[in-house]
């Protein structure tokens, strides 16, 4: 197999297989969690749980989830907040608003949306890469994170880091000829798609259960979530 064949393979059958694995893997995870059953809450609410839940998600989505709810707590660990926040914003901008990625989305979804100019995308990619390195260093140096971190957490960082790094190299024509680095980039994306349902990167899906639930519970008790 030469590089051209490899390129066709990773962006063709392998990508399709990875995407299907991602979709069905995530569905499986979601269904198995939901099927564990939910208890009905009989305690009267002090304020609307629905409003509390929706507002909590909107607040996070619109204002940016990493605006700390308790500032003095965030000030004690600014690295996690800042690097975590910057990475998530960078991820969204690069994957959802980068011209090349919107083309990829179009090939899957059949429609497209406006994009941002490459220098802006490039900037967000660069700060995301730096943020991931900082988050890795943070896991190694912070005593709490050293205790909490398990091997899969490092694999998560690596699996997310590689598409960013190869994408950045590709944009700047660094290291390898375009076709090869492109092939490697798409391969890392395939790996990421397969790894997400197997790992904690899937947290973004459960976020849409836990975050509104938090809002609902605090609203029920008459407190601001």
């Amino acid at each position: 197999m030469n590089w051209t064949d490899a390129m066709h393979f990773v962006r063709g059958p392998l990508f399709s297989a990875a995407l299907l694995f991602f979709i069905f893997g995530m569905l499986y995870r979601l269904v198995t969690v939901i099927a564990l059953g939910w208890k009905r809450d009989h305690a009267p609410a002090k304020s609307s749980k629905v409003v509390g839940g929706v507002l909590n998600v909107l607040r996070s989505a619109i204002i940016f989830p990493f605006v700390p709810r308790i500032r003095e707590a965030a000030n004690r660990n600014p690295i996690t907040y800042l690097a975590g926040g910057i990475f998530h914003v960078g991820l969204f901008v690069v994957v959802m608003l980068g011209a090349a990625h919107v083309l990829a989305w179009e090939s899957v979804l059949g429609f497209r949306w406006p994009t941002l100019p490459l220098p802006i995308i490039d900037f967000f990619a660069a700060i995301s890469i730096i943020a991931l390195i900082v988050l890795f260093y943070n896991r190694l140096s912070n005593p709490v994170l050293r205790l909490l971190t398990r091997t899969p957490d490092y694999i998560n960082l690596l699996v997310v880091f590689l598409p960013f790094l190869t994408g950045f190299f590709m944009t700047h024509r660094l290291l390898l000829p375009y076709e090869r680095i492109y092939t490697i980039h798409v391969l890392t994306v395939d790996i990421l798609l397969i790894w997400i349902p197997l790992s904690r990167i899937s947290h973004f899906m459960f976020y849409f259960i836990t975050k509104p639930r938090h809002g609902a519970r605090f609203a029920q008790r008459g407190a601001k979530p």
Partner: peptide, 25 residues
């Protein structure tokens, strides 16, 4: 273990921020 517990355990990314809120820590 019910749905609520499972969803919460699944959602944790081990970011460790919770330590900074806990007076015992």
């Amino acid at each position: 273990v019910g749905g609520a517990v499972a969803a919460q355990l699944e959602a944790c990314t081990r970011c460790g921020i919770c330590a900074e809120a806990c007076h015992f820590y």
